[in-house]
Computed example of a mutant assay.
Amino acid sequence: MNNSQKPSKKRFFIALLPPKDVQKEATKIKKYFKDIYNSKAALKSPPHVTLQPPFEWEIEDLPNLIQALNHFSQSQQPFFMTLNGFSAFKPRVIYIDVLKTSELLSIQKSLMSHLESSLNLVHSVSKSRPFAPHLTVAFRDLTKKNFYQAWPEFKDKEFYYNFMINEITLLIHNGSNWDIHSEYCFNQLNDLQKLIL
């Protein structure tokens, strides 16, 4: 391979993104961490709850990944997600807490199972530990010292949103940040059928 050729693999991950107004509020908090606590790593992606952690995928094989995600999303129903307050993975990560509902746990488990069976895509670490849904606002470049300064400020802070999730999002790494690549809407036909019946 000569240097002028683009790499054949790109990094992706699959997530649930809150509505734009909620993303805006979460981004304000990320910017606060950047300005006050010198932690900007969380600004490299839109606010999200990860379902499938980052993985490498052949660009030529992207149609198969897209087909699998389309197929999966058509079998899902919209559900409510609740963000409530802050929590932490001490001593380096502060996040907006996500209510662990049966629908959220179910979609994550179903997605991982679907990707494994249809694409042989497996994230071994995720298989060996329970799913802990969270929306990160500071991590990686948050020093332990800054963590212990920020945590008392955020541990009892209020942040509450309840909203409908009706799609999953595929994000792609552009070399420095994560961009939205494509979105896959859930099957809302059943709701329409209920209205007609």
Rank of each mutant, 00 (worst) to 15 (best):
M1N: 07
N3L: 10
S4Q: 10
A15V: 07
L17D: 03
P18G: 02
D21Q: 08
Q23K: 08
A26V: 08
T27G: 00
K28W: 02
I29R: 06
K34M: 09
K34D: 11
D35P: 00
A41F: 07
P46Y: 02
P46S: 14
P47T: 01
V49C: 14
T50C: 02
L51V: 05
I59D: 09
D61T: 04
L62N: 06
A68G: 09
S75E: 15
P78G: 02
P78S: 13
F79S: 13
F79R: 11
F80C: 04
M81A: 10
N84K: 09
G85S: 06
P91S: 15
Y95T: 05
Y95F: 15
L105Q: 12
Q108N: 15
L111M: 03
M112I: 09
H114F: 14
L115E: 06
L115K: 00
S117R: 08
S117D: 12
S118T: 14
N120M: 08
S124V: 07
S126M: 11
S128F: 00
F131E: 07
L135H: 04
D141E: 05
T143C: 03
Y148G: 09
A150R: 00
D156Y: 05
T169F: 12
T169R: 14
H173V: 01
G175P: 04
Y184T: 06
Y184H: 11
F186W: 07
N187L: 03
N190V: 06
L192C: 08
Q193H: 09
K194R: 10
K194L: 14
L195D: 12
